[in-house]
């Protein structure tokens, strides 16, 4: 049986995104039919200081705040630098480009096509999820973390 493969692409911006810009972009993306999965990538913003003499102290950071995407509240854990998307078909890409052009007015961006998400379970995934892992969650979250993917109701 042949397994369906879905095209993937990555939105890379010239600057790391503020939460407001991220929220704006994601709300534009939720209006586009045909996006299956999405990962926000970037350097992590921990809640507490992880290293050094201040270890364990609170780490207030203006780039880590909850944003509203569609009907869900998303707690940002990273300073968003790239958005990885899995699409139902390549026909969605022009709509993505239009959405990005509306949001990124002060700096440049590019949309790259390629393979950016994990599609087969790794050893760590196997340890965490077992032999019958749900492939729709692979690559969406670090298997060693307790965070789970957020499901946003699409418009399709």
């Amino acid at each position: 049986m042949t397994e369906a493969t879905f095209p993937q692409c990555r939105i890379v911006t010239e600057r790391l995104l503020n939460p407001e810009t991220t929220e704006h972009l994601l709300n534009k993306l939720t209006e586009i039919p045909g996006i299956r999965r999405m990962v926000l990538n970037g350097p992590r913003l921990p809640v507490t200081v992880t290293y050094g003499p201040a270890k364990g102290m609170a780490n207030p950071h203006s780039m880590r705040k909850p944003i509203h995407v569609g009907d869900q509240e998303v707690e940002l854990q990273v300073h968003v630098g790239t958005v990885i998307l899995e699409l139902e078909s390549r026909d969605v890409i022009p709509a993505l480009k239009t959405a990005c052009e509306q949001v990124f007015t002060h700096f440049t961006f590019r949309i790259q096509e390629g393979k950016f998400m994990k599609t087969e379970p790794s050893l760590v995934d196997y340890c965490k999820y077992g032999p019958d892992a749900d492939k729709s969650i692979l690559g969406l979250a670090d298997p060693s973390s307790k965070s789970k993917p957020i499901i946003i109701q699409g418009i399709k």
Partner: peptide, 18 residues
Amino acid sequence: HGHSLRLDENGMMFDMLQ
């Protein structure tokens, strides 16, 4: 960490501890 990262929208270098 921040030396080799893109700047943020305000033109500041990334700092995990801000």
